[in-house]
Design a protein around this nucleic acid. Structure first.
Lengths: 184, 184
DNA sequence: GTCTATATACAGATAGAC
DNA sequence: GTCTATCTGTATATAGAC
């Protein structure tokens, strides 16, 4: 069954968001689903296979969520607040964004996973830029959409990273204040 | 000699900024300075001793740099640009901020190192907030200094993290544009 | 698909000689 | 302060039985 494969992938994703790729082993993963480590290698021959699958799936889910969010909200305010809320949920579980975590571990990732990681950030920022540009009339920011998109993405990734250290959500709240400040 | 200790600490700092705490071993560290791993344990009995020393020294250097920067520049514009330049230098070496990297590895750090890490971010943001508030007349941002300080720190940490994945410095440039945009 | 068993490598840490 | 030697644990990965 590829049910096991998906189960392993889900558990790996959670563990990486909390502790990083390096702390996820074939053994801990096997224990979590009640098999032996050799069985995990059946589903994911190497660790690179696992990290690549995890990043790709995370990106697909993230993009799907942005598309849903796009349909649900009509204003820029609504869309940006919903975007920010994704990071609130991540932090609430004391996690990092999967890709923010793996960005820190960049040098230990294989080329394919690194490429998939770059794609995640590019797609997120492309969505933000598109969204901002469509609603340019709602903006007061003296900042091009291209720049604002990158500021928001970097800021949110950094905010979750720093807030997890400090406890609480002071940085994320500052980011919400920024979003509010750039809206008309 | 504590010359060796400082040498080990410097090499550990560089290695952590590039690859993270987990990739720095007593063996690789020993090889880099031409001793055996047991000798590294003489200077830093446990890995926690090493990480704590590294974060504390990094924070002290960072704060000293902020104080120097404070004396050198008179305008908010000058001070914030100089602050941003610190992150440019980090990225230019394909490194992360030591504390940004270790923030990702939070769950694997001992309590003392975690506390020292929190202190780094608090001190950096406190400096920013103080600096912004002193020059409130140079600001156009409809954002309190407390929030702007956190946005800048989160944004810069995130920008270096994401830019290293992508290559180039697009996110850091967007942050520079933000700084320019909030100045009168 | 999952298992046992194993190969190989490397991690942090310590004992005790020099 | 540094060394050799070693303990113990864990990592990724593979071979081959079931």
């Amino acid at each position: 069954m590829s049910d096991k494969r998906e189960q392993l992938q889900a558990i790996a994703t959670q563990a990486i968001q909390k502790d990083g790729v390096r702390s996820v082993s074939f053994r801990t993963l096997a224990d979590a689903v009640g098999v032996k480590s050799a069985s995990v290698h059946y589903h994911f021959p190497t660790k690179s296979d696992l990290t690549h699958a995890v990043v790709s799936a995370y990106t697909a889910t993230f993009v799907a969520r942005l598309e849903a969010l796009e349909r649900k909200h009509r204003t820029l305010s609504g869309k940006l607040n919903a975007f920010t809320r994704i990071f609130d949920e991540v932090l609430a579980d004391d996690d990092l964004c999967l890709c923010g975590m793996m960005a820190a571990e960049l040098t230990s990732l294989d080329a394919a996973t690194q490429h998939a990681l770059k794609k995640f950030f590019d797609e997120a920022e492309a969505w933000l830029e598109r969204t901002i540009d469509v609603h340019a009339d709602e903006l007061t920011a003296p900042l091009p959409g291209k720049h604002l998109a990158k500021v928001l993405m970097s800021g949110l990734e950094g905010a979750v990273l720093l807030d997890r250290v400090a406890g609480g959500d002071n940085r994320l709240r500052a980011m919400r204040a920024l979003v509010k400040a750039v809206l008309a």
